[in-house]
């Protein structure tokens, strides 16, 4: 079975600053894959490389067996055109820390936007599915509200519905609960738990160790641009082998 995400020696630097120093990892289909680590460790950057919001400097990164952002012919790499990159992103949903909902559209319009504009779906079809998705994330009654009229937790759930509307085969979550009030975190995690149960492949950058332990199939601890430790959450979170993992977990748990 092809891995959904496969990274081989992925490097990324901003000018002289090396953010990723050779990441190797594999995410299997239907897997919930959690990335943890201190801020600045490169986990968000890696996540953004997966849908080519950031370009990698060396190594290889594959999604569902296909190279991200490039096409290989013989030993030559060709950069993909913007249009081709956009086409590949359709299959990858992304949820941001700051939600990034479109503020000038209502909740349901946010969810309908990409299917109509990108997949050329009819308004009626897109609306019907958008309402179903909003129902699924528990916001069926907020369809007509603008993002500014919703709480942070509600906005994040709309953002998840918006990503799901493109029927992605992979979902990326970039610290989806970090900008939320503590009492709103649970609702968002519940939606994510439901997604995991439905078999969605998910890569989640998170500080929610409870979520990683309960829902995650694998956990990777990153620090300073490298993978320090990886494995089943039971092992990594409760019985860490490396000093850095131990000291990080002792601070957040």
């Amino acid at each position: 079975m092809t891995a959904m995400v496969k990274a081989e020696r992925v490097h990324k630097s901003y000018g002289a600053v090396q953010v990723l120093k050779g990441i190797d990892l594999e995410v299997a289909p239907r897997e919930v894959f959690c990335l943890i680590g201190p801020s600045g460790s490169g986990k968000s950057t890696f996540l953004r490389c997966i849908n080519h919001l950031e370009k990698i400097n060396s190594g290889r990164l594959y999604v569902d067996g296909e190279l991200v952002g490039y096409r290989q012919q013989g030993n030559k790499l060709y950069e993909l055109k913007d249009r081709e990159v956009a086409a590949k992103r359709r299959d990858i949903g992304m949820v941001f820390q700051r939600f990034n909902l479109f503020p000038h559209m209502t909740a349901v319009e946010n969810v309908m936007e990409a299917p109509i504009q990108v997949k050329r779906e009819s308004k009626a079809v897109a609306r019907e599915r958008a309402l179903k998705l909003l129902d699924r994330v528990g916001l069926g009654d907020k369809a007509g509200n603008y993002p500014s009229q919703l709480s942070g937790g509600q906005q994040q759930r709309v953002a998840i519905a918006r990503a799901l509307a493109m029927e992605p085969k992979l979902m990326l979550f970039d610290e989806p609960t970090s900008a939320l009030d503590p009492e709103l975190v649970g609702d968002v995690l519940d939606v994510m738990r439901g997604l995991a149960e439905d078999g969605m492949t998910m890569v989640v950058v998170t500080h929610e160790m409870g979520f990683a332990r309960e829902v995650g199939d694998s956990v990777v601890f990153m620090d300073d641009g490298v993978v320090v430790e990886s494995g089943h959450p039971r092992d990594v979170l409760t019985n860490p082998q490396h000093e850095r993992t131990k000291s990080f977990l002792s601070k957040v748990l």
Partner: peptide, 25 residues
């Protein structure tokens, strides 16, 4: 900038992102 990123993550082209997301705001 998050608006552009969100639109592009959804697979929207540069032109669509500009017309549907950036310009209205």
């Amino acid at each position: 900038e998050g608006q552009t990123e969100a639109a592009q993550a959804l697979g929207m082209s540069h032109a669509k992102t500009l017309r549907r997301v950036v310009l209205p705001q």
